[in-house]
Design a protein around this nucleic acid. Structure first.
Length: 451
RNA sequence: GUGAUUGUAGCUCAGUAGGUUAGAGCGCCAGAUUGUGGCUCUGGAGGCCGCCGGUUCGAGUCCGGUCUUUCACCCCA
């Protein structure tokens, strides 16, 4: 049989894993620095935890896990006869793969309410699964990197989450623009335009501005049944470039005033904005599709890239309500790690540390020197140096070729004269030069090599 | 889920209007070079032409299905 892997999944080579770890570690260390604690949740959740949380589209994209054992014995036969897949699913599948990290987090908070401090700051870096059609940069299995705070309405968290974005992307050497808006402002716009019930349609349309342009948004809103007069009003308001302008346009609207006040507070926390290369921007056209956001919303856009958003997030009032715990507010952000990886790869932003750390390979000429070399290797490893020995004392050409393939920067050549004198022949694989030195000197030299 | 698109050696790709034994470059292996990798030269291995079926005397080539890839929509990270 010919081996294959499921659609939308990937194997990762050592080179890729080094780079992915570099990226995850950068994100993780900033999360930790800001006081966020790690949690992990199962790849499988009960289907009842997942269904209905992501809308109709989301339910369709959920991976369901078939029950163990004789699952047909429990099957809803009337649904089976009627070929009603949706109804049948409930009787043959009780578990599903997690679709994101936010819903499992909400479940976690409710289940462990008495064990966790409040406010609870958590980060989580784990894979999630979606049965979406794969495309470039979009997979059925991918990692999410989330940080959320629950149990506080303080805007200080919005401020620090923005700083986390800033610090991570600065560390990665990838200049970005962090866009900020507020869902209450969008709600106010819908109210002022006279279409409070069509807030979702409006935001979904506005969200596509980057992609389809102003004319496209106008058309989309019309198609979604928003009257022409309202569309005109919305466009006029979205022209606002500053909070001051917006304030005038939304004057007298309670929701608008609240939203603008929140944005003011956020920007006050972040003043002065002292970033090395990243921008912070108020953008009234930032909408974010997800419906559960209720306050500030964020989105990160690469400056030099035509790749959509590299991260997003926002505040939600009622994350845990569906699990029976009302009025727990939260705010969180997510890094689009797979996309960030692609951008960094394209721009060659991964440093050389994000690679194989093997520094030294021992190559011996015969059985006797091979054993001697192994003892030297043991000493070198004791000193904390990443090293290995070629498994057999075969011809040197073969051993050096292996060193080359592994990109080992140094090879220690161990023959009779080395064994007798204790002077080790050390070959620099980059320069092609060779020198003779004692074990201690060799260890010192290896320690000083950063690669 | 809708409409397209891709699949030939490990990789990137040729393959002419259906016609013997399917090619190239790179990579790989061996030797030139018994204690020296990369460069060079010489030789070699490696393909159910994605899979299943159909048309045909004959299919890598045409048709249908299926899986996969990529793209646009939908949605989203």
């Amino acid at each position: 049989m010919k081996p294959s892997i499921p659609k939308g999944t990937r194997d990762f080579s050592p080179e890729q894993v080094y780079k992915r770890n570099y990226l995850f570690d950068a994100i993780k260390s900033v999360f930790i620095k800001y006081g966020y604690q790690p949690i992990e949740t199962p790849v499988m959740e009960n289907l009842s935890t997942l269904t209905g949380k992501y809308g109709e589209e989301g339910d369709r994209l959920l991976f369901k896990v078939l029950n163990n054992g004789d699952y047909l014995a429990e099957a809803d036969t009337s649904a089976l006869d009627a070929r009603d897949s949706r109804r049948l699913t409930a009787s043959i599948s009780k578990r599903g793969l997690r679709y994101d990290l936010t819903v499992p987090f909400a479940r976690f908070v409710v289940m462990h309410l008495n064990e966790i401090p409040m406010p609870f700051k958590r980060y989580q870096i784990q894979p999630v699964w979606r049965g979406d059609r794969p495309a470039k940069g979009r997979y059925q299995e991918f990692f999410q990197c989330d940080a959320d705070v629950v149990g506080s309405e303080s805007l200080v968290y919005e401020a620090e989450l923005v700083q986390i974005y800033d610090e991570v992307f600065a560390r990665l050497g990838l200049p970005v623009t962090i866009k900020v808006n507020n869902r209450k402002v969008l709600a106010a716009i819908a109210e002022v335009a006279g279409i409070p019930d069509q807030l979702t349609s409006m935001t979904v349309a506005i969200d596509k501005l980057d992609k389809i342009g102003q004319e496209g948004v106008r058309k989309e809103m019309a198609e979604r049944g928003i009257p022409e007069s309202a569309v005109a009003k919305i466009e006029q308001i979205l022209e606002a470039k500053t909070l001051e302008t917006l304030e005038v346009l939304l004057a007298g609207n309670a929701s608008g005033e609240k939203g603008i006040a929140e944005l003011r507070t956020l920007f006050a926390y972040l003043d002065p904005w002292a970033s090395s290369g990243n921008s912070l921007e108020f953008d009234p056209t930032l909408a974010r599709g997800l419906n559960y956001y209720t306050g500030c919303i964020f989105e990160v856009q690469g400056k030099a890239v035509q790749m959509g958003s590299l991260g997003g997030g926002g505040r939600y009032d009622n994350l845990t309500g569906v699990f029976g715990l009302p009025d727990v507010p939260g705010v969180g952000i997510s890094f689009g790690a797979e996309r960030i990886y692609d951008v960094m790869e394209e721009q060659g932003l991964f440093p050389s540390e994000a690679s194989d750390q093997l520094k030294l390979l021992f190559a011996a000429f015969d059985e006797q020197t091979h054993q001697f070399a192994f003892r030297l290797l043991t000493e070198v490893r004791k000193a904390g140096i990443c090293a290995e020995i070629y498994p057999d004392p075969v011809k040197l050409k073969k051993q050096l070729k292996y060193a080359n393939d592994r990109s080992v920067p140094f090879v220690a050549l161990i023959g009779d004269s080395e064994m007798q004198t204790g002077q080790i022949a050390l070959k620099d694989m980059v320069q092609g030069t060779q020198e003779s030195l004692t074990l201690d000197a060799l260890i010192e030299k290896m320690k000083s090599q950063t690669r």
